[in-house]
Design a protein around this nucleic acid. Sequence first.
DNA 1: GCTCCCATGTAATCTGTTACATGATTCC
DNA 2: GGAATCATGTAACAGATTACATGGGAGC
Lengths: 184, 184
Amino acid sequence: MKKYNHTTYAILGILTTDCKSGYSIKQQIDQSLNHFWKISYGQIYPTLKFIVEEGLAEVQTSSNIGKPDRHEYFLTPKGIETLKAWLEQPIEQIPTERNEILLKLFFGRYQSKESKVLLLEDYKRKLQDRFQTYLSIEQVITHYQQNHEDARYWLFTLDYGKRVTVAAIDWCTFTLEQLLNGEE
Amino acid sequence: MKKYNHTTYAILGILTTDCKSGYSIKQQIDQSLNHFWKISYGQIYPTLKFIVEEGLAEVQTSSNIGKPDRHEYFLTPKGIETLKAWLEQPIEQIPTERNEILLKLFFGRYQSKESKVLLLEDYKRKLQDRFQTYLSIEQVITHYQQNHEDARYWLFTLDYGKRVTVAAIDWCTFTLEQLLNGEE
DNA sequence: GCTCCCATGTAATCTGTTACATGATTCC
DNA sequence: GGAATCATGTAACAGATTACATGGGAGC
């Protein structure tokens, strides 16, 4: 079976939900996958075109009164097969997440103590904000989509985000303490 | 002050250590920054050329008997200034790490239970391997570079990696349990 | 009149990986 | 003789972001 890139599979996956157009795919990803997958229109539209060329989906144009035309994409049996085949494959390797904070701290010798503390405090705040966002998303999923079969899996991915974020916040707290109490 | 990309700053930072050539920069990054920053020769050499063009470093070619010529790069005062200025700047936003496992689990409805379990077990194993690698690096830093001023900061970044990895492993354990005990 | 939301798309640019090309030395 | 290490570099490609272009409708 032919191999596609991750973006293609991500869109194939989203097309299994109620999101059928480029615009709503973007919205859905921004809302629910945003913590581990981002995508821009510059990728979405060309990829949708490609998916149709490959026979993985079919387009239907629907006209709505008072709204622009919408291109709606529906997975073909081949599209569903392709998605399922990819889902079963184990991942090759865990990616290295590029972390600017760690890069800066790595060269901490060339920075003042104050600067490092500010940097970490700022980062910690951003992580806490992110954690709050996760809680909000969790509320939405639990309350509005209680019976949705997908909800269970969406909550699993959220749980991952929450756990990792908490670990990072704890690290900030610990490292700040070390910096403030440390000799020098 | 002119803005450069992260790769440029990363290399500028590495040039503060004993690594002065493209080859040894690659080695150093693979050994010590690998868990949060990767880089390939295809980036290193062009970036080094660029850094010289910008007046941030100067080259010196050293001939060694029995070894190929080496281009050694030394930061100029402007280079050090540029690095320091960047280090002080807070990060704009926390990046979204793309996570293939989460993407696959997000579409868990289209996968068999067995497949999901295998996927998570495989991921967990990879995380455990990574954790072991972190422990090895930690040993190297603590024993061989005890008095190195940089060591302290290197250990901070490692600690981050360890904490986040443990959180991810715990999540795997929990999610596997949920999948195995869950109804259906 | 202005802004926001809906909706689709392209082009330029940036960032990064992989494969290729070269060539000397050392160790088995 | 062959593999590994040292060492530098380029070209092709892949992946992704940003800015731009277009245009209607709703609400203030």
